[in-house]
Each structure stands twice: as structure tokens, then as C-alpha cells.
Write a protein that binds this DNA or RNA. Sequence first.
DNA 1: TAAGAGATACTCT
DNA 2: GAGTATCTCTTAA
Length: 188
Amino acid sequence: MILKKSFYERETITVAKELIGKIIVRRIQGQELTGIITETEAYREKDDPASHAAVKMTNRNKVMFGNPGVSYVYFTYGMYFMLNIVAKSKKQNAGAVLIRGLYPQEGLSTMMKNRGLENIDRISDGPGKLTIAFGITKEEHNKDMTRKSSLYIKDGIKPKKIKSGPRVGISKGLDKKWNFRINPKDYF
DNA sequence: TAAGAGATACTCT
DNA sequence: GAGTATCTCTTAA
């Protein structure tokens, strides 16, 4: 089952938590790459100083103000893409969930080639790594992920225990425990 | 195993 | 012109 728009049209933090254990599907060059989501982070709007949408709408972050279930891919640190999904309730102006980690399932050989690495445990365990492993670039920005296309998310496993903590790599909003993750070793 | 620094280009002010 | 929702390598212990 592909996750519907109604799944994403809820409180950003709720969506971030429930995306853990879901399966991301990337169709590229006639093959499918899939992975279980192991880590996410929630980013909101004015109440969240760490969010791109904290100040105002700009060219880069405008999709965060748009339709839930749409991909938000952006470039950072001069060499990495980050994959997010717009998620917000009708009461929120903006919000998105950052996908920080995946545990690979299908298409392992392609991911190894993309990353030049054979360690399955490390191949997509960070936001910059997973976009390289799955071949995600600016081309995948602003795409509807509730439809079967080159990139979407479907139902996966039920995680037993989700850990939460402060978000990673930011300098503001450290008081908010909006990072959610599971340990793949507990499941596979 | 941990800590530190460099790479690199895009976006916003 | 400054800062960045990161990763990898090197060095040292």
C-alpha cells in the first residue's frame, strides 16, 4: 500500500514518528531500489528556529508551504542532497520530515556501485549517503510521493521501539526532541 | 575508537 | 559574503 496524502496531512512530528519502518521505493533505469526508513527528523515553521521555513517563504523552501506528500530535495555543504517529505496538518503553514537513514532491501548491487562501498550497514545510514545510494538529486525535487512513480513510500514493518532525541547538525532549536530512529540490528 | 579538519557550491542577506 | 538539516579521511591513542 502506497501511503496516501491523508497520511502526510497531519502534525509533522506525528508523521515523522510514523514514517519509521515504512519502505521507500526508488525506480531508476528499470530497476527498483528499496529501503526501510530507520531515522527521521521533523521540521516545522515559525515555532521551530532550525527549520528552513522558520523565517519566511523563499525560492528554496516554498514546497514546505505546499501540498503534503510532496518531496523536498535540497543541496547543502557544497556536495550533498537531502531528502524530505512535506508533512503538515491543515492548521500548519509549513512543515517537512527529513529522511536521515535507510536500511537497504532491494537493489543492493546498484547501491554499492553508486556509493563505491560494500558495507550494507553503512551504505545509507545518513541523509547525504542515502541520496547517493538511491540516486536522488534535484530531479526528484517537488514530486508527488503518494503516486507510483520514480519515488514513493509504501507500508513496511511495525517497529517495536522508537527512540527519540535532539536533531543532528543544527545550531538552533536543540531543545526539541524531534529526531526518531530505530536500530536496524533489532529487526534484521 | 575518537576527534579534527577539509571539500565544495548553493541559497539567502 | 557568510553560513550550511554532511561525509570521509587522517591522525593519534
